[in-house]
């Protein structure tokens, strides 16, 4: 098999995998609730910042509401 043929076969293979990946991504976007927003777990972030030895204000991640 020529080198150029090997490269084309690899290209075809990679492209096929990417196409299947795009179908998979589309499937996930359909199965996710349509109005879903990515939610940040604020308590988890606060805990991680405190563990790092910082107060929340120093971490500059959010403003504590009065």
């Amino acid at each position: 098999m020529k080198k150029s043929e090997k490269y084309i076969i690899i290209l075809i293979g990679v492209a096929t995998v990417i196409v299947m990946g795009v179908i998979y991504e589309n499937t996930l976007s359909v199965l996710r609730p349509p109005s879903a927003k990515i939610m940040i777990d604020v308590e988890k972030v606060k805990k991680e910042i405190r563990q790092a030895g910082l107060a929340p204000q120093e971490g500059m991640h959010w403003k504590e509401l009065p």
Partner: peptide, 16 residues
Amino acid sequence: ALIVSVLLGNASAASI
């Protein structure tokens, strides 16, 4: 693409 769209009931899966 066709089978996935049919199973989901949504043609968006076929947007490739």
